[in-house]
């Protein structure tokens, strides 16, 4: 552990803002890259389900 206390860990020797901001942006980008495929999948599957239902009705 390179920090003595939790408050020191947050402050990061005065660079806290920069470090935490970077990690926050990284988190946001990671979440976007997981959430958007999940949403995409939902949309694709609902499209496919609707398509199947329509075809069954017409046949």
């Amino acid at each position: 552990m390179s920090f003595d206390s939790f408050s020191e860990f947050i402050v990061m020797g005065g660079h806290g803002l920069y470090v935490w901001l970077s990690y926050a942006i990284a988190l946001v980008i990671f979440v976007i890259n997981i959430v958007s495929p999940v949403m995409q999948k939902k949309k694709v599957i609902s499209d496919l389900v609707r398509r199947l239902r329509r075809e069954k009705k017409s046949s």
Partner: peptide, 17 residues
Amino acid sequence: ALAFAPEDYQQGNSFRI
């Protein structure tokens, strides 16, 4: 990276980026 890596002697903790 955030808690255990040593800080840089020149850049301090901003090095963790």
